[in-house]
């Protein structure tokens, strides 16, 4: 295949424990470490491995967001992507809008054989964009992938589902969303960071694509979850059994 398109979302780093703002208008992201969504890093790693095996000629990383997402795209380029596209917008775009933006860029690029996306972003935890893209593109989706085997104009994808591992066969082009155990992403080396600075990063203002984002689902208020308090500590197995009996659990 010619091109693989990989989505990279800029999200609050997975080690950060986010806090809800006191006025309930959102979560506090001031000065918080931002990273590539971990599932998207896995998607990029898979794309790079496919290209290194000679099954694709170009890996393009794409993000939708503010200028700050350039950081994550540069990291993607340092990992080994050939070029980057930032669809620039300061507004939050919901998954349907994101899927339509991806579709617009696929049409613009041509010859995209595979779109690799994370199965969910760890900020909104939506798990929607890949499925929506497949629907509007009219192409197959293979979500929650733990193995991708390419075979000519088809792919065999093993999916992590609630009851085990399901394998499906899809015609290409297709959308694959990645689960945790698909691969372990490579570390970026310093010389690659230097090299990445010279790789092309195109910015496309979202307005240029003429996207209809669909009826909005509005976030009206944020609140912290109800906290579970610390309970009692017991000293030994006998104490544990008594505590469980008191609650009628054994």
């Amino acid at each position: 295949m010619d091109k693989i398109l990989v989505g990279l979302k800029r999200v609050v780093d997975y080690n950060v424990r986010v806090r809800v703002k006191s006025d309930g208008s959102g979560v506090d992201t001031d000065g918080v470490k931002m990273s590539i969504n971990p599932f998207d890093e896995i998607a990029l790693e898979e794309a790079l491995r496919i290209k290194e095996r000679g099954d694709a000629s170009e890996v393009i990383v794409m993000s939708i967001g503010s200028g700050e997402a350039q950081q994550q795209l540069r990291t993607g380029l340092a990992m080994g992507a050939d070029r980057a596209i930032l669809v620039q917008t300061d507004a939050a775009i919901e998954p349907l809008g994101c899927a339509r933006i991806f579709k617009a860029m696929i049409d613009k690029e041509g010859d995209v054989g595979l779109v690799l996306l994370g199965k969910q972003a760890i900020d909104d935890d939506n798990s929607q964009t890949g499925q929506m893209l497949a629907a509007i593109w009219g192409r197959p989706q293979a979500t929650f992938a733990s193995e991708v085997v390419l075979d000519g104009d088809k792919a065999r994808v093993t999916r992590e589902v609630d009851i085990g591992l399901e394998t499906i066969e899809v015609d290409l082009p297709a959308v694959v969303t990645t689960d945790l155990r698909l691969n372990e992403p490579r570390y970026v080396k310093l010389p690659d960071i230097m090299k990445a600075k010279k790789k092309p990063l195109d910015e496309v203002p979202v307005a240029e694509l003429g996207i209809d984002a669909g009826p909005a689902i509005e976030a009206t208020a944020y609140e912290p979850p109800t906290e579970r308090g610390r309970g009692v500590m017991v000293d030994d197995v006998a104490g544990l059994i008594t505590a469980l009996q008191d609650k009628g659990l054994v």
């Binding site: 919901e94 998954p95 349907l96 899927a99 939506n126 798990s127 929607q128 964009t129 890949g130 499925q131 929506m132 893209l133 497949a134 629907a135 509007i136 989706q141 979500t143 929650f144 999916r159 992590e160 589902v161 609630d162 669909g214 009826p215 909005a216 689902i217």
Partner: peptide, 19 residues
């Protein structure tokens, strides 16, 4: 579940709505 997460966004997108 993985069944619904796989399916419902696809349905929503075909209907042209967010999920």
């Amino acid at each position: 579940t993985t069944f619904g997460k796989d399916l419902m966004p696809h349905v929503a997108a075909l209907l042209g709505v967010n999920q």
